[in-house]
Write a protein that binds this DNA or RNA. Sequence first.
DNA 1: TCTAACACAGACGGACCTGTCTGTTCAATA
DNA 2: TATTGAACAGACAGGTCCGTCTGTGTTAGA
Lengths: 195, 195
Amino acid sequence: MTTREGLTARQRILETSYDLFSQRGVRDVGVDEIIARSGVAKATLYNHFPTKNHLVLAFLDLREERWTFEMVETEARARGQTPEEQLLAIFDVFGEWFRREDFDGPAFISVLLEMGRLHPLGQASIQHLENINALVAGMAEEAGLREPHEFALSWHILMKGSIIAAIEGDTDAAPRAKTMARHLVEQHRLTDARA
Amino acid sequence: MTTREGLTARQRILETSYDLFSQRGVRDVGVDEIIARSGVAKATLYNHFPTKNHLVLAFLDLREERWTFEMVETEARARGQTPEEQLLAIFDVFGEWFRREDFDGPAFISVLLEMGRLHPLGQASIQHLENINALVAGMAEEAGLREPHEFALSWHILMKGSIIAAIEGDTDAAPRAKTMARHLVEQHRLTDARA
DNA sequence: TCTAACACAGACGGACCTGTCTGTTCAATA
DNA sequence: TATTGAACAGACAGGTCCGTCTGTGTTAGA
């Protein structure tokens, strides 16, 4: 089952796909390149993933696990003492992500724009984006903010906008978004008077 | 030079490309489809545009003319009495754009994500996005806001974020962004006390 | 030792892509 | 009328892509 490096063929395929898809997009990377790079036979790939679309779906799931949950949620929760601070820490995590030399860009948004919202992969991406929304809404609820769902939708605009800005080259997109995010939190605090 | 419908071959090619590229992205549409749809010979297309990339560049220029200037700038300026109102009116224009049945999504961001920031088409898209930034900065200057360039970068985050949210399905992304935009304006007003 | 499951290697078909090429038609102009 | 430039029509080459297929090797367990 396992070969050199202690990874199964399926794992090697998925790891290679993760790297290539993240860096260059799902349309620019063909199965032949994935096969060559992961040192796997074509039949093996198609044994584990019936079509390329299935492989992309597996990639998106893995992306959610690593990016949404391990990088964004776990890191943000670890950096803040209070739920409010944890929310704001998302943009500190973003700031470091934006500056990494291997900054890979937004997988869900890229797939959504590449494939369109009607395509199955676009639909899957929308679902993953909604999961991010639910995550933010949950943290807003923990922070005792009012209208956590509406809050999350606005918050997510800041997240997505700052990511695109970072790709464009704005290296300070994260602190910029964080400032706006702070005002949004203030607007949603129950104890605060409404503007 | 001109044929039926009074359009030159070049114009027909560009109009067809505009519709197809806007709706489905530059990677999903091949030159054969553009030829068939615009009723033009292949040699004619390659007479006017040396490569497909040249055609995409012409599309991006046309997009800037129609979307950035005619739709966003002109409409926003027409709807507001004061420069501040004109800035905020951008999100009213967005609100109507998002709800149009032929809402076509963000061309510059899509091409940037599809091709990558190093590709010539990605570079061209970044340039067009920076032109939007300059436009916003100019309007901020007219409104007498402090730090118009920094303001524009934050403002643009709201624009881009709301567009992605709209594609995702958030039909109220525009008013949501407008609320945050209003607070951003307040933060940059000279006459206002800082927080 | 034999067998069954898995993985490797790579050819192949059919569809698509971009860009080039040949040849024809048509309209304006000299 | 003759010519010239532009566009039409479509075959074609060279490449890529996805997915199928055949055949070989390797490993684990009965």
